[in-house]
Nucleic acid binder design. Structure first.
Lengths: 186, 186
DNA sequence: AATCAAATTGACTAATCAGTCAACTGTATT
DNA sequence: AATACAGTTGACTGATTAGTCAATTTGATT
């Protein structure tokens, strides 16, 4: 792993544990095993570091979300695939998931970064819009629907992270998806 | 309003806007119109200040949640009352709601404070447990259920805060509750 | 071996901030 | 008027930290 990656990895863990402002850059570089100055060779400043981290994580997540999506034929099965991919990614990348939860609304993430991150969800938003149009799910504002879906999704994910053994339990995974589905289905 | 209250109010707004570590105590006292030393007459240190703030807000919320609850007779109507009270409180106390969202898991809130805050929800947890026992709502782990309920509740609340005009719309309020109810009902 | 550029280093600086404390103020009591 | 005292003040201190930069190392090329 090159120095840039080691810095990103150390920053991820330390930002999660201590927060952005309570993590000295000296601590990050020490954890990464490089000199304090090296961080500023790869990143203009501490803010750029966390913004790069944000986009890197988001990209990793969105790649995972579309995995196997083309095989699914119905709206419900597509949504379920996304649901399972989201939880799977979060269990495989717990640090990254928790990083999002903590920093998705933090002011150290710039407006540009946030928008770039959101745009990666465009195709999912389109899928949901279709579901509403075709009256498969309840007819409400798209903003409302996506907001609610994220709320349910994250609540479930937190639970699976706290109880990782349940994630292997296909029955419970199905049950948990039904909480989401029953909420929105027409 | 006495100086203590002015300090709490200023801290609430500034912590929300800039975060705990990015809010100098000097800024809080300036906003409150008192000297920098005065903060430390009322609070041992900056951490005690945010912990007191947390418990003060939580108490205000829990008082509101039980408002008119005794008039409701069925499980569903009780839950709906709590739902409406929660959203109503959050709209009346947006700063306090956002404070919770930002700091409920922050490390500056002590373990003791967090436990004391959680205990205020005990009677609501009991209500939910009854709903499960009586098979009115789906049979799952109480932790899972409360986690999911909070997720749906907060997602809805965020939406109402962003679209305050909708909160006066009784039909939409009903619709939004049905997303929650349909998710959990048996 | 000699040369050069790019990467890396870590001591250092300028700035910031939590909390202290000696001095001051206003009010109550005698 | 004198005394006492709780509340308030804000200049100050010791500690911390983001970012700099001149010196050093590395590794490729001739």
């Amino acid at each position: 792993m090159d120095k840039r990656d080691r810095i990103l990895k150390a920053a991820l863990e330390l930002f999660n544990q201590y927060g952005f402002d309570n993590t000295p850059t000296a601590r990050i570089t020490k954890e990464a095993g490089v000199a304090t100055g090296t961080l500023f060779n790869y990143f203009k400043n501490k803010e750029e570091l966390i913004n790069v981290l944000y986009l890197t994580c988001k990209e990793s997540l969105t790649r995972r979300l579309s995995l196997g999506l083309e095989q699914e034929t119905t709206f419900k099965s597509k949504l379920k695939r996304i649901y399972i991919n989201y939880i799977g990614w979060s269990l495989d990348h717990t640090e990254e998931f928790l990083f999002f939860q903590q920093f998705c609304n933090a002011s150290c993430i710039g407006e540009t970064t946030r928008k770039e991150g959101l745009s990666k969800f465009n195709n999912i938003m389109e899928l949901i819009a279709e579901g509403i149009e075709q009256e498969i799910i309840k007819k409400v504002n798209l903003d409302y629907m996506s907001n609610l879906l994220m709320g349910i999704l994250n609540a479930n994910t937190y639970y699976f992270i706290d109880n990782p053994s349940l994630a292997a339990d296909a029955v419970f995974l199905e049950t948990s998806f039904n909480f989401l589905w029953d909420s929105i289905k027409n």
